[in-house]
């Protein structure tokens, strides 16, 4: 009987080596360990054994059964693993093919710049103001210290709607409108982004373009504050390593007035083609609010001071995104727009 058992054991182990599928393992299990299996058959003959041998053979039989169960289970695992590997292998795809396309909507680069500027200035405590694009001569010129027949009106070629109404040539009229609505409150801190219009059309000028106007009025405002606010803006908009430079200039509605340059981002100020070898790029006009403009806005220039600035959004977008032609903004080529 012992030899029978040992034989079963070796038969199973041998058979296992040839087994390839789960079914075959099962067959083996049934054949040897099942109710009618060979091992069971052998154990049925236990009764014929002498009583002293019974426990010994019984233990041996159990041991062999356990061992066979174990190797059979191991074989099952092994086969399952192989089968899974084969399955995974068959499921292989070309991971280099492109992924699903999702329709990507984009904001216009000018909107992106305007939004970024809004966020920067809101962080500095500015409110966002707005005003009409079709504007009276009074707000566009007169209240900005530009009376009729003032030669500086030539600085801005104007589109007229009537003799007294124009397409605003700058966002500056919002200065006076804001002052009128806020006086005598201080501080006034607003920026106004929007469309403006001038009679100009070439690679660097568009008859319609965008500006962002800024105005701060309070007691004790100084030109150095203007410099500080603009530096904060420039470093957030263009990068913390940028510098600014003030140059004297002239705007009828500010005195003193300054043109503001930002250091060139391409050559870091050393001079290159982009900055005409000066190291600087002109980005905005600014100055201390002219006393007459404060008066027009309803503020007392002996009590409060202010500064104002105006920047071209297209100019900033061109510098920021390396756009070389003004016309790209308004052609709205989808291949241009989808890059932003």
């Amino acid at each position: 009987m012992r030899t029978q058992l040992e034989k079963i054991k070796s038969e199973v182990k041998e058979a296992l080596n040839k087994v390839k599928s789960l079914e075959e393992v099962n067959e083996l299990k049934v054949k040897y360990l099942g109710k009618k299996g060979e091992l069971t058959q052998v154990l049925r003959g236990m009764g014929q054994l002498v009583p002293e041998e019974r426990p010994i053979i019984g233990q041996l039989a159990n041991e062999i059964r356990d061992e066979l169960n174990k190797v059979l289970d191991e074989q099952v695992k092994k086969i399952k693993k192989i089968e899974q590997e084969q399955k995974l292998n068959l499921e292989t795809i070309d991971v280099t093919l492109p992924g699903k396309q999702f329709l990507k909507g984009t904001k216009h680069p000018l909107s992106l710049v305007i939004e970024e500027a809004k966020q920067i200035f809101m962080g500095l405590g500015f409110q966002i103001a707005e005003g009409p694009e079709i504007e009276t001569d009074y707000y566009n010129f007169e209240a900005l210290n530009l009376p009729k027949d003032h030669p500086a009106r030539d600085m801005q070629d104007t589109f007229y709607i009537t003799s007294d109404v124009v397409l605003r040539t700058h966002t500056s009229p919002v200065q006076v409108r804001s002052m009128e609505s806020l006086t005598p409150e201080v501080p006034v801190k607003i920026i106004c982004p929007g469309k403006v219009y001038r009679k100009d059309d070439d690679a660097t000028h568009s008859p319609m373009f965008h500006q962002i106007e800024g105005l701060v009025i309070d007691m004790g405002i100084r030109m150095s504050d203007l410099k500080g606010v603009l530096l904060a803006f420039v470093q957030q908009m263009f990068g913390p390593d940028r510098k600014i430079r003030f140059r004297p200039s002239y705007f009828p509605f500010t005195e003193p007035s300054a043109e503001v340059d930002v250091s060139c981002g391409i050559c870091k100020g050393d001079g290159c083609k982009a900055c005409s070898y000066t190291g600087w790029l002109e980005i905005l006009g600014s100055g201390m609010v002219h006393p007459n403009v404060l008066k027009y806005g309803g503020y007392d220039p002996t009590k409060v001071k202010g500064f104002a600035f105006g920047m071209g959004v297209e100019r900033i977008a061109m510098l920021k995104y390396n756009i070389n032609d003004m016309r790209l903004f308004f052609e709205n080529d989808i291949r241009f727009l989808r890059q932003f």
């Binding site: 200035f121 405590g125 409110q127 405002i221 100084r222 150095s224 504050d225 606010v229």
Partner: peptide, 16 residues
């Protein structure tokens, strides 16, 4: 001209 920030009172930076 130095670079400073205004001494103004805190103001509401906001959109309508």
């Amino acid at each position: 001209i130095p670079t400073t920030l205004p001494f103004s009172a805190t103001s509401k930076g906001q959109k309508t």
